[in-house]
């Protein structure tokens, strides 16, 4: 079976020294891997390389059997990789309501969907993330947990097969973190996506993923 994600000898340098080198990993469908390591090890950078938002200095990135990045050349642009991404600071669009942001993603990523199908998908996503009553709210009108769920909703509305998460719970308190982990679990169970989860917390890594990949300082 083809790996959903495969990194081959990926390396990246910064300020004339290697962040990481020779990173090789693979991820099957519905798999979940936690990317762990100390601060400055390059975890976020590696995630951005997978998403196509950054380029490696060496190595290849394969996504769903397709060579997406070869060396420093992006062969498949980010918007065609059919990924979901939850940023560390969430990066919610301040000028769009929750529903509008989902509408934007679906219209961009799944242009073939009819209006009815789009609305249904949005409704489903809002239900899954318990945001039905908050669809018309702007980000600044949401609580911390609600913003987190809105970020999940946006990352998943177009039903990507791979979700990338960059320390999504780092700013949450213990209770909320627990709640969000459960939410993530439920979403994975329902939608069946694979996941690369960046964290510096070893315990969290074990809780969310079935495998751990450790990046160390080069």
């Amino acid at each position: 079976m083809t790996d959903l994600l495969r990194l081959e000898s990926v390396g990246k340098a910064r300020d004339r020294r290697f962040l990481f080198r020779d990173v090789t990993l693979h991820l099957a469908a519905a798999d979940a891997i936690a990317l762990v390591g100390p601060s400055g090890a390059g975890k976020t950078t590696l995630l951005r390389i997978v998403a196509g938002l950054d380029v490696p200095d060496s190595g290849n990135v394969w996504i769903d059997g397709q060579l997406a990045t070869r060396g420093a050349t992006i062969l498949v642009p980010p918007h065609r990789r059919r990924l979901g991404f939850v940023f560390q600071d969430l990066a919610l669009w301040p000028h769009m309501t929750v529903a509008e942001s989902l509408e934007f993603v679906l219209a961009s990523a799944s242009a073939a969907l009819s209006r009815t199908e789009r609305d249904r998908t949005i409704d489903e996503t809002l239900t899954l993330t318990r945001l039905e009553r908050l669809r018309r709210r702007y980000p600044h009108q949401l609580s911390g947990g609600e913003q987190q769920r809105a970020a999940f909703a946006r990352a998943l509305v177009h039903r990507p097969t791979l979700l990338l998460l960059d320390e999504p719970f780092s700013s949450l308190d213990v209770d909320l973190r627990e709640e969000m982990r459960k939410t993530l679990d439920d979403l994975r169970g329902t939608l069946g996506f694979a996941m690369v989860f960046v964290t510096h917390d070893g315990a969290e890594a074990s809780a969310v993923a079935n495998r751990t990949f450790r990046l160390t300082l080069a």
Binding site: L53, P78, H79, G84, F87, A91, F104, V105, S108
Partner: peptide, 16 residues
């Protein structure tokens, strides 16, 4: 903030 645009680049081309 660059991440606001990057979040959109993941699903839409640069012009959009």
């Amino acid at each position: 903030e660059s991440r606001l645009e990057e979040a959109a680049l993941l699903v839409a081309p640069a012009t959009r």
